[in-house]
Structures are given as C-alpha cells and as structure tokens.
C-alpha cells in the first residue's frame, strides 16, 4: 500500500498563562491510501490537537509546532506551506469533520451554499453548477428531500442531518484524506451507527483514507483497519485492529478494553474504571506517563521512558513490561469478546 501521509516527530506545545503545555510529544505515524486509521485515547491525550495540526487549524497565537516536526503530504511538508499552497490542500486534498455538528455549521448561510463553497474554491465551476453539485452531494449522504433542504439553514436541521451535511461539505471535493474528529460524540446512539455506516460506505466508494479520532472503542472495532492508542501526548501502542483487540500489549490498552461495558455483565457488578487522572502536561513525568495509574508499575517505569518494542510487522508498544528482565504476566482475562457484537 502507498503511504499518503507521513508524520515525523510531531511535537506541539501550547503557551498559556500557566506555562507551556506539552500537548503532543514527539509522535510519528503514517497513513496509507484508502485505510481507516483510528486514534483512540481519553480526553486531553492530544488526539484532536494532532488531527487539527495536519490541516494547520491550531490557533497560531498559542499553539507552537516544533521546528523539527514534519507532516509530509504529497512530497511537501504541510507545516511549511504558505497561503495559496495551504489553501489548495485544505478542503480539496484533506478535509475534516468536527465533533459538534450543532456549532460547526455557519448559522447564517444556507446549507447548500456551505457545501457548494468548497467546490467553488477548488474547482472552476459556476455558482449554479456548484449548488447543483452540492445538492447531489447532500443526496449522496442521505439527506431526505435534498433539493428543498439545500435552501434551508442549519437551525432547521436535526443533529444527525447536520452531521450528514458536514460529511457532504468534507467530501464535496473528493479529498484523499478525511479527518473525522469524534464525528459521532454529539449524536445519539442510533444516529451514531447510521453516520458511521455512511462514512464507511463513502470511504469505500471514494477510496479516501480516514483518520478517525475517537474514544469510543465500539466504533473502532467496527471500522478501523489500524489503531493507535494515545496517552499523554504520545502514541503508546499501535497495531492492526485484530492485534489491538485480541493481543494488546500495553496495560493502558488493557485498561481501556476492560472499561468497555459488556452485554454479558451481571446487572449488579461494578463497571471497571481506570483509577487516577492523566498526568499534568505542564510537567510531564520523566518516566512512563502511565506509571502512576498502572497496576503493573515497576521502579524503572518512573525513572526512564520506555522504548518502542516491535511485536510484529504492524504492532509495536512502548512499555517496560516488554523488557527481557520484566516479570512475565498473565494478561487480565475478559479482554476478548469486546470486538464481538460491536462491528457494524
């Protein structure tokens, strides 16, 4: 498969009154043509910051991307692009769907025009043609009565319809990469399933590569080809879907999987949760960031950051438990089965 996006040593800090928050700490990963890559992790682990940085959407006043960072798309470093070149990539080559469809659409602009806008910017067509195309796009994403609805404003749409409109906007120019930042978090469960199914179908039709940012492992199980687990601004484990669900290596990944409620669970039994809170990224710990909350923490974990251990061609993990001197553990039971019944 062809590499379409290559991220190297991405480091992003935020300058705040309290100090410098190290939101993303030296991560590298690649995206391949036509695949769905999921980035999972809890709130504040740097998922959204990473995804926004690919389109250069971080606030320039506070966000600082390290000079050694590279985001290579189409042979050029996105981080170094200026004005026109950047504009060409945004919306045309790489598109994005945001978390909250309620606030992501312009309230004073007709939805049809909002979809047509990116077409007008990136292709040489007339306003009329663009609007026609926009209606087609809205039909494609399953908006009922698209001709009529295109003339309406976002406030006349339901949440699910707005997210469909967002998808239409994002896919209008048939981008090579779609970044979906928690696309279903703000929607209720039945609509979630519909939206995810829609994204998957369109992805197959258009052969778009997707970066799916989410904390919902159920969605990941049903959709992702590859999964990256982020914690405290770092990628701590990565692998293809089956590896991550059937043979996870990092205690944080175990904990995440155990936190998913199961249908088979007895009604009175307590749900599993990870104790403690993620570290303060103003002062990230010296050793492993998860050490404080880890059930298997060893003295070395607090001292030195773990190095990446290659498990297979596709799977790798950053954890001291992989060291040859570490005690051999039995992985917690009950991890398997998460993937069943969750796929779409």
């Amino acid at each position: 498969m062809k590499k379409i996006l290559d991220i190297k040593n991405l480091t992003i800090d935020f300058n705040t009154y309290a100090g410098r928050i190290q939101a993303v700490r030296n991560i590298s990963f690649s995206l391949y043509e036509g695949e769905i890559l999921a980035i999972v992790g809890e709130s504040g682990c740097g998922k959204t910051v990473t995804s926004k940085s690919i389109m250069r959407l971080l606030p320039e006043a506070t966000a600082q991307v390290n000079n050694h960072s590279e985001i290579i798309f189409d042979g050029q470093n996105v981080l170094k692009l200026k004005g026109k070149e950047l504009k060409k990539i945004r919306g045309d080559e790489i598109a994005m769907i945001f978390q909250d469809p309620m606030s992501a659409l312009n309230p004073t602009m007709k939805v049809g025009h909002q979809v047509a806008e990116s077409l007008l910017i990136h292709t040489k067509i007339t306003k009329k043609q663009a609007f026609k195309e926009a209606v087609q796009m809205l039909k494609l994403v399953g908006l009922p009565m698209a001709e009529k609805r295109a003339h309406e404003y976002p406030n006349q749409y339901s949440g699910g319809m707005r997210q469909r409109a967002m998808i239409a906007i994002a896919l209008a120019c048939k981008p090579k990469i779609l970044i979906a930042d928690e696309p279903t978090t703000a929607l209720d469960v039945t609509i979630q399933a519909q939206i995810m199914k829609l994204i998957k179908t369109l992805q197959a039709d258009l052969n778009t590569a997707i970066i799916l940012v989410t904390h919902d492992l159920g969605i990941v199980a049903g959709m992702a080809d590859r999964i990256q687990v982020m914690y405290a601004g770092q990628i701590i484990e990565r692998g293809v879907r089956e590896e991550l669900f059937y043979d996870p290596q990092h205690p944080y990944t175990w904990a995440l999987l155990r936190s998913v409620p199961k249908v088979s669970q007895k009604s009175k039994s307590q749900l599993y949760s990870i104790t403690g809170t993620p570290p303060d990224l103003l002062y990230p710990p010296k050793g492993c960031a998860f050490a404080e909350r880890c059930e298997y923490c060893m003295p070395i974990c607090r001292k030195d950051p773990p190095v990446e251990t290659i498990i297979s061609k596709t799977q790798s993990v950053n954890c001291w438990l992989q060291h040859k001197d570490a005690p051999k553990l039995n992985k917690p039971s009950g991890l398997k089965g998460v993937i069943h019944g969750q796929s779409l």
Binding site: M55, L57, G83, K87, K88, I89, R90, G91, D92, A95, M96, F98, D100, S103, A104, L105, N106, P107, M109, E117, S118, I121, H122, M166, I169, A170
Partner: peptide
Amino acid sequence: DYILTAKAKGVSGFSLAYK
C-alpha cells in the same frame, strides 16, 4: 467552530471575513 469548518474548506482572507 464554524469558522474552523470554513478554514478547513479552504476559505480564507476576505471571503472568510465577509461571509
């Protein structure tokens, strides 16, 4: 958020400000 959406579409400069 919709300003971010517009930027992600490639809208910039005058038309971002105006529209």
